[in-house]
Simulated assay, not measured.
Amino acid sequence: MTIAPSLHSSSAAWTDARLLYALEEVVETELNRHLKVAKEWMPHEYVPWSDGRNFDGIMGGDAWEPEQSKVSEIGRIALVVNLLTEDNLPSYHHEIASLFGRDGAWGTWVHRWTAEEGRHGIVMRDYLLTSRAVDPVELERFRMEHMSAGFESDNRHSMLHSVAYVAFQELATRVSHRNTGHLSGDPVCDRMLARIATDENLHMVFYRNLLAAALELAPDESLRAIADVVTGFRMPGHGMPGFERSAARMAIGGVYNLRIHHDDVLQPVLRHLKVLEITGLGPEGLKAQEELGQFMGGLDSQATKFDERREAFLARRQARSEK
């Protein structure tokens, strides 16, 4: 990528407005690449409509019971978390549209991303209700509570912090969907979540490439943003009802935990960006680079301890089940 010489200036000049302008061409390039590789797909084709029947209530159908679900217990937990996360799309759209704007290539991407993400919520809800995978009453009550609270970014409302966050978050979502599908016990669910995960991976590539361009343009500021995001990372659904308990069960169940977060989310993005190999940094960039290295080493150690505790717990549970 070539940066216009006039845009190379002191770090104090890198306001969000200047960065948005400087990266507009990169956004346009990435948008065009995305549109070429993204494949159209129809949510209704991934839903087993013939399995559907009326619920109790005004339609006089059958009430939901856990044994009606084809998915595993961990699958149900993860599916609810994943769908409630997708449900807050209006808040996410507001966040990125406020930061990136609604004009030019930035605006086109914001609306395209929102449209693609909306498809994920549609197909997941249709699948869950048609297949009776989860309690529909509980799901709707959780949705109302979660969306009524809305979503506010942890990332200081800085453009660079937001780009860094979504680069990691999109990959985290892809991994969570993919693992949920594998552990669901239902091939239909697995196929649906694999389709969603493909979209999430394309979104990650868009933001990762944009972050790479930002690192070339403003390395110190970009590294500071990356370090802040990595060391304080939380999934966007952290405010949903019962999230901590669900997250703990997903961690033990192998959907998403410290080892997965370190190995399959943070490391691939950081390695691709070569953040620990960047030279010519100023004091702030060097400090952020050092923080990243120390944090990743500590996280790896924490993940190892978690793995050991998880294996011991699963062994005890298996032994109890065999008695």
Rank of each mutant, 00 (worst) to 15 (best):
T15F: 00
H261A: 12
M296D: 01
F168T: 10
L128F: 05
L20E: 02
M147T: 10
L160K: 05
E138S: 11
R234A: 13
S9Q: 08
F142W: 09
L215G: 01
F233C: 09
R33F: 07
W41V: 15
V163I: 15
M296W: 00
Y21E: 14
R317L: 09
Q267K: 12
A167C: 14
G104Y: 00
T198G: 02
G121K: 02
M250C: 15
Q302H: 09
G61M: 01
A213D: 03
L299W: 08
R141S: 13
K274W: 05
R156H: 15
P90F: 11
H111I: 06
D300W: 05
E216Q: 12
L223P: 03
G185W: 03
W41Y: 14
Q169K: 02
Q68A: 12
P5K: 11
T231V: 12
G293K: 03
G107W: 01
H182D: 14
R141T: 11
L210V: 07
E67N: 09
L19R: 01
V275Q: 02
M250L: 11
M59F: 10
G118W: 07
Y127N: 05
G280S: 11
A133D: 03
V37W: 00
D135T: 03
R271A: 08
V80M: 14
A105W: 03
A247W: 10
V269W: 04
A227D: 06
E152I: 15
A319R: 13
E24S: 08
C189D: 00
H157A: 12
H111C: 03
I226W: 07
G297D: 13
T114N: 10
L89A: 00
R191T: 06
H262G: 01
R125N: 04
S321C: 03
T173F: 00
L202C: 00
N257L: 13
I58C: 02
V134I: 11
H111E: 09
E308I: 08
E216S: 12
H157F: 14
A38S: 12
I77P: 00
V71P: 05
Y92Q: 10
R317F: 02
K70T: 09
A251H: 07
Y256A: 15
E138M: 08
P48E: 07
H203L: 00
N54P: 05
S9H: 10
G285H: 01
G150D: 12
E24G: 15
T85G: 10
T108Q: 10
I58G: 00
L223N: 06
I260M: 02
A315C: 04
G107Y: 01
